[in-house]
Each structure stands twice: as C-alpha cells, then as structure tokens.
Design a protein around this nucleic acid. Sequence first.
DNA 1: TGCGGGTCCAGCGGG
DNA 2: TGGACCCGCA
Length: 748
Amino acid sequence: MSGPHIEVSDLVASPSLLEGLNPAQVEAVTAPDVPLLVLAGAGSGKTRVLTHRIAYLVATARARPSGILAVTFTNKAAREMRGRLEGLLEDGVQGMWLGTFHAMGARMLRQRGDLAGVPRDFVIYDEVDRQALLKEAMREAGVDEKRFSIGSIGGEISRAKNDLQGPGAFAAAARGFTESQAAKVYPRYERMLEANRALDFDDLLLKVVRMLEGSEVALGRYRERFGHVLVDEYQDTNRAQYQILRLLVGEHRKVTVVGDPDQSVYSWRGADLRNILEFQRDYPEALVVPLEQNYRSTAAILRSAGAVIQENSLRLEKQLWTLGPEGDPVQVGQFYDEREEAAAVAAEILRLHRGGEVGWGEVAVLYRTNAQSRALEEVLLRGGIPYRLVGGVRFYQRKEVKDLLAYLRLLANPRDRVAFERVINVPKRGVGAQSLAQIRDAVQAQGGDLDTVLRDPQLAGLRGASGAGLSRFAEMMAELREFGSGWALVEVLDWLLERSGYRALVRDGSPEGEERWGNVLELRGLAAEQGEGPALQTLPLFLEQLALAGEVDQLEDGSRGAVTLITLHQVKGLEFPVVFVTGVEEGLLPHSRSLDSVSALEEERRLLYVGMTRAQRRLYLSHCFQRHLYGSPRGATPSRFLKPLSALEGTSGWGAPGSFVAPASTRGQPLVLTRARDALLAEATRPSPSEPAVARFTAGERVEHARFGRGVIRVSEMTPGGEEVVIDFDGAGRRRFAVTDAVLRKLG
DNA sequence: TGCGGGTCCAGCGGG
DNA sequence: TGGACCCGCA
C-alpha cells in the first residue's frame, strides 16, 4: 500500500482537516480520485474519515459541495454527517446531496421519475401500508393465507425487487412452492401500487435503477451532477443500491466506499456481502485503506473480539489494535437460566454503579431476540435500576399517528385506497367489511379510481346506516379539500380531529388515551412546523418527510440516565463503557434458523462481534444451562463462538452465587464467586419489601426525579414487581421506571 | 357489527 | 408463554 498522497498546497489549504488523524486516516482522507475502499474496523473513526474526506475534497477544490453525493443507510448517520460537515465546511453543505439511499431515490424520482413511468405525485407506502396491499393481492391471487404468510410472500417480492427482478423475470425464475405463489401475487401487487400512485421502499431504489438504465437523459444528468460519490456502510448495500452506484459513478470512477465486512449483519434485508468483498474486482485500480487503529475498546476486548471474528472465512483480513490500556479481562459467565442470568447482570450493574464506576446510562445489555428482554426487564425493575428498552413500535407506526396520516394522505391523494380503507370506519361509521367489499367493487367499476366514488357515494350502492356513513365521510373529505387550499396544515389537522370525531375516540379519559393523545400532539407539532402555507401545498412534502423519517431518536436524549436494553442488530453503530451480551448459546447465537448454511452462521458470528466491539471498558458474555423458550424450559449449551475465548489469556469467568457449576468442558475459566456479589445479587432479585398495593401516582401528575428533574406522569400501572410509571420529563424525554421512594417525589 | 374464545405461531427490523 | 388473527355467536 502506498503512503499518503499529500500535496504541499493541499496542506496549506486545509491543515486543520488532517490534524489529529492517524496515518491511515490521513491516507484515506487525502487519497486521490481513484475508487477508494476504506475498510473501517469497529471504532476506527469511520465517520470522521468520511466527513473529513468530503471536506478535504471541497477545501482542495477537487469538488464543489453541489457535486458531491454522500449516501448512508440511516437517517441518524446522515444527520451525524451533516452535523459534522457543517462544522468542517465554511459554506456548509449547501447543494450537497447527503442522505439515505431511499431519500436520494425519492428525490431523483420526484425530479425525473417520469422517465421511468413514475408519477410525480407518488406517495410512499411504509411497511404497514404495504402489508395491507399485499394481503389484498394475495386474496386476489387465491393464495392460501393459512399456508403462506404475508411475511414470506412479501419477503420474496421484496427480495425480487432488491435483485432488480420485475414480475415477469421473477415468475420465470421462480422455483419452489413459496416462490411460485409469490409470483402470482407480485404482478397484482404492482398493479395495486400503480392504481394508488404509490411506491414501496424497495421501489425507491428499483425505479431509480430503471430510470438510469432506461434513460440517457436521466443518467447523463446525474452523472454530470455528481463528480464524487461516497457511500457509508457499504457492506450493507443490496443489489439495487450497488447498481445505482455503478451507474452513477460511470467512467469517472470517483467513488469512495466505507465499510466493514465483519459488521455485515443484514443479509436478510437484502445486503450482499459480495459488494464489498469484490470491490477490487469491480474497480481493479482501487485503493484499499484499512483503518485498524481502534479508539474505543481496551486491548483485552479487542483481542477477544478478534479471536471470535477470525474464525470467519468470508472477510477481508484486518486486525484491530489500540494504544489504549489492556483493561479488565473479558468475562464469560454461565448461569442456570435466564432469570439467574438477568439477576447476575443486575447485580453486576449495581456493583459498578455503587462503586461510582459507571452511571446507568453507560451500560448496555444486548441480546439476540426481543423475547429475551423480558427476564432482564423484570429484574431491573425489581432492583430499581432505571432502564430503557430500545425498539418497540416506532412513532410513525403507532395506530393514532398512522390513522391521522391516512386522513391527510387521502386529502393529498384521493386515489389512495389503503389510506381510505384504514380510516373509513375509524371512528365507527357503520361501514364494515361487507360494505367495504361493495365499495371496492364500485371503485373497480370506476377503473380503480376511488376519487370518483368519493365524489358520488351513491355509486357504491350502500343502503341504510353504511350508506349514510360513507356519505358523511365523503362530505367531510370534500370540505377538508376545500379548506386545504386555504388553511395551514395544522389548522386543517385541528379541524379534522374534531369533525371526524377522532379526538374523542383517542382521548377517552383513560391514561392510555392520554398517551395516545400525546402522540397526536407530537404529530400536530410537526404539522405546525410546516408553516402557514395552504395545506394542500405543504402536505406532500410533509408526508414525504414523515415517510422517509425513521424513529425520532430515543437514544440521544436519554443515554445518560438509564441502562439500555437493545438487540444486537440495533446496537450496531453505538458504543457503551460497559456491555453485557446475554444468551450466547447454541440456538440463540447462532440462532437456530441460521444453522443450515455457512454464510448464515458466519453472519451470526459477526453479530456477536458487533456486540463485543460496542464495549469500551468492560465486556461480559453470558450463557445459560437452561432457557425458557415459548414458555417451556429447554436445555442450552454455550455458543460455539465462545470456543476461541477459552484459550485466550485475559478472559475470566463471571458467575452467579455458587448454586450452579458448569461442566468443565463448557467454560473458559473457573467461575469467580464472591460474597459481596452474592449479597448484591440477593438484593437485586428480592421483591421490594414494601410494595404498595395501589398505585401512588396517576397520569397527569407532576413529579420530580432525583436525576432527570421534573416531568409529568403519563402512565402508571401495577405490575407484580410493584408500580411502574412512564414519565415525560421536561428536559430528558420519556422514560419508564419502577417507583421507588428514593428517586421520585410528587410536586405541588 | 362487535366481542370472546380457540388456534397458531414464534429472529433480527432501516427506509 | 403471549400476541395476532379468525370464526362463530349476541
């Protein structure tokens, strides 16, 4: 590998951009305009290199911001890059395209989608909408819903789209029963999307490929525009994304990809590891710069993680190292079952916290499947350890938010049948399944145009209550449309909430109702940000932003105050001083569904690797002798992935109070048992002594928390472990706690 | 149309 | 074990 390519003039132009970078980072940042593959190991300063390279390209006048396309997978990554670049570039990121693949796709299709037959006013269907449509298409195709789930059929279609296969090509290549069923559904699903003027997320990539391949105009336009293309998380790209990049990069080949094959854990979402493994085949003149210096973890942690990942065959060799301290040994512990495992985790967290070593927020507990979180939650709750469960239903997927958005979508696009069917009977208007079928027929008779039927509800031929209900709904939508041309979006929404009866439905006086109402208000706040312009004009952009937006960050705001419970997949990209990886067992990690292929198995190993490399100072791995699966206990054995650790120096045992001793062959080192830990464990698992039989708090009450300050109770409920409350803090977001006298007091 | 009980299923989840 | 969904009944 050649050394850094630095011109003296470059250094003069932008000395600060290289300050504090290590030699490999400098080499990546300053590399010439050749295809560049940055093999960025975990914790090696990947984002820093990417942003500094962009800034460097601009500072040395090799690119203007508007000539740069930088794509990421997540909104979060895009936001982070944007933030950093704004600090690095004098004139900011003006004109630069910096965003997710899907946002890029949507933007291109809005501009020139007509060249691929995409209507300009398309709407984007999310997972829920997509499933509704799939279900319908499956019925129409006569696919037995009992034998084939929406998930499996939808998965096939999604995979086909990611592989750039249209319905015809897919049908021709279909093998096996599921595929042949999916082949019957696919064309129908496509027709339905078209009739609704909708694209699903896969389309945002597929249609771009079609556009660029089918139109010289489009291809020329974007090739000319983007002289430099940079890609984050390249190991996660699928076939469609790969093809888009190939097309855009064209002959200039000024492409920088950053990624780490060892952290590829999304093959089930279409990611193709070959894209990164074969980058040098695609671009023989490519420069490859490995970033191997790690700034995150102790040497002990890196050594263990390295020993694990080294067993994989599908990788590009890379060895992480650090100038940092050796640190505490990585601990591998065996426990009797998931309850004891959870108790040991809690006890260790308590110990570290008491010793003043860590705050709650500096600890993360990782697991393979969401179901594993329950045992952990129970114990943390009982031990009074504040925690935050990452995952669950995302804001934009919550029912009340989806319902209101459906109303708004129908306003923006009167042909959106999925939106219509979602809300026609919410609140109840007497239009049930029977009536809906009739309406569907009527729509079909009108050439699939829902709008015609809404303008003339008689067409549906409904009688009685259901006919009246449809008419009322149609009338309301007509009024809404009228107001939409004059009123601001937030005003339209307020009117809608009253007129539709939705507010009354949501806000039924129960604590849950208040929580739902809180979500509505959050959405209302977003609508208010759209300004005073007529709703019909601001609405399309609003809907697009929401469709492409991910979760409102749960992690940023509160990472200081609570232990994080999170899946191994979701933890990618994060770091914590103390990390527990639980359930490192055969059948769980590797998951039983991954045992039949080497590549799937290796992906599971990467998953463990990702988990281990999140740890900064302390890392604990645990497995059980027995674990409850679907309610019944099953024997468990340590994961095969742990084997290389037992031979490693600097790995030690971590155990529960002497009740259980592992068979010698299944553990690394002798379990470490201490009295102090026994006591802590007992404390962590003991039911709170003075549980009040009734809730102390009620929704709406203002309280003060020792750590998070003031807030308002959202939900209070009694659980076997005591009272549990959800609090919206004034300054620290939403949190869930077990009530303990020590931390919470009522105000006023 | 709305509900209650039986049945079936169960991995990870961005945009 | 528990949630989602379907079918049958008020």
